[in-house]
């Protein structure tokens, strides 16, 4: 079950990475980041079969950080949308050179 879990984790992480690279909608990019975090959780749970319950504790902390990150990130998206009336990241080029 460990190897299968790690393979599942890798596939989900790669799909999430691809989504972040290919999509320009800030909310969907954000969803794909959540997908990556979730893939890492799968790896932690799979490896907890090898190292013990500590792996599951880490998943707990990752979930907490993901919740905090979602709250702050969505607040940033809302305030950007108020300013630019779009969530397409190609339009946010203030820091581009």
């Amino acid at each position: 079950m460990i190897t299968e879990g790690l393979i599942l984790s890798a596939i989900l992480f790669v799909i999430g990475t691809f989504g972040v690279l290919i999509r320009r909608n800030a909310i969907i990019m954000f969803l794909c980041i959540e997908l990556q975090l979730n893939a890492v959780n799968v790896a932690f749970v799979a490896l907890s079969r090898s190292v013990g319950i500590d792996g599951q504790i880490f998943v707990f902390f990752v979930m907490t950080v993901a919740a905090a990150e979602a709250a702050v990130g969505l607040a940033i998206i809302i305030s950007i949308f108020r300013h630019y009336e779009t969530v397409n990241v190609d339009n946010f080029n203030l820091l581009k050179w």
């Binding site: 079950m1 879990g5 969803l31 959540e34 599951q56 919740a67």
Partner: peptide, 22 residues
Amino acid sequence: MEAHFLAAVQVIVYAGAIMVLF
């Protein structure tokens, strides 16, 4: 994978709360 509590938390917090926020 014997992580029953995390499965419940995954459904309640992730699929429930965070996705509703999105």
